[in-house]
């Protein structure tokens, strides 16, 4: 935090200013999170009448459940596939858009379009194209001799989910990559050109390394997106199915908590996810500090 002197000497006013934020934070963030942690160490009947401390039992339950491990593996595979896919496409497009082009704004607006739409809207658009009996892509695939039915084939369901998520996130990644490429000093590029570097050499030796803080930042953001913000897409597109093929950690937590009423199990999963977000945020924070240091 910056150590500059106060502008105003008031003693009570600052507390009043932070009160709204603090009250809402405590009621809707801190308290429920502590509740979730507490519930993860206790067992209670569905009506919450009797509660007793059970130590690590809930964690043992989830970690000995092969389906939980399935959801963990799935979440990471899904997040990694979405992240790599979306970043590769966005970086390529940003590289193409880096020099002044006619219609640059139009391109940017179009690419950002899906980002602004609701996850549910994204899911509807994609399910419409891939609906097994009427979807245009499913129909084309059928003519090519491929049977598409993501309501039966887990692999296809996951692929559909990845495609829809990538489609939604390209614009966001594009904007950041473009900003990173634009921030590379012109003199570097000119020096490279004078030395006779080809366009692909300039990309791999200069642009990409200099954009690597952005790449890292986007990786974390895409992982967070894949873990948490895809809930609406999953719930509309596959509901975690078929046969748990698309049941990510987040979706499973929701199903256990709100469909099966396994409150304590669900709470243990919350705790695991909290730990995961904390690690990601800490990484992000450390890394951003480094970046500031170098600039």
């Amino acid at each position: 935090m910056t150590k500059v002197s106060a502008v105003f000497p008031n003693k009570v006013l600052p507390y009043l200013l932070v009160t709204p934020q603090l009250t809402l934070t405590i009621i809707f963030f801190i308290w429920p999170s502590l509740q979730a942690l507490y519930q993860s160490f206790t067992a209670s009947d569905p009506f919450g009448v009797k509660t007793r401390f059970v130590g690590l039992k809930n964690f043992r339950d989830i970690f000995t459940d092969p389906y939980y491990w399935h959801s963990v593996r799935l979440s990471f595979v899904f997040a990694l596939q979405v992240s790599l896919f979306v970043m590769a496409v966005a970086l390529l497009l940003a590289f193409m858009a880096k020099n002044p082009l006619r219609g640059a704004t139009v391109y940017k607006v179009f690419l950002l379009w899906p980002y602004a739409l609701a996850p549910v809207t994204t899911a509807i658009l994609w399910v419409f194209m891939f609906q097994p009996s009427i979807g245009i892509v499913a129909t084309v695939l059928r003519y090519m001799g491929l049977t598409w039915n993501h309501t039966l084939h887990g692999g296809q369901a996951l692929l559909l989910l990845i495609l829809a998520s990538v489609w939604k996130q390209i614009g966001y990644n594009f904007v950041f990559f473009l900003a990173a490429l634009h921030s590379v000093p012109k003199s570097f590029l000119e020096a490279a050109a004078v030395d006779g570097a080809s366009s692909s050499q300039i990309f791999t030796r200069i642009l990409f390394p200099l954009a690597s803080p952005t790449t890292f930042f986007l990786l974390v953001m895409n992982v967070i997106f894949s873990f948490f913000d895809t809930f609406g897409i999953i719930d509309t597109l596959t509901k975690g199915g078929p046969a748990k093929a698309t049941e990510t950690m987040c979706y499973r937590l929701f199903v256990d908590g709100f469909k099966s009423f396994l409150i304590n199990r669900s709470a243990a999963q919350s705790a695991v996810l909290m730990l995961f977000v904390m690690i990601l945020t800490a990484l992000q924070f450390r890394f951003l500090q480094h970046r500031v240091h170098y600039e």
Partner: peptide, 15 residues
């Protein structure tokens, strides 16, 4: 920042 709705969903609902 570290507490997305998804990880504290049931207790928040209860509140």
């Amino acid at each position: 920042l570290m507490l997305p709705l998804e990880v504290r969903i049931i207790p928040t609902y209860k509140v």
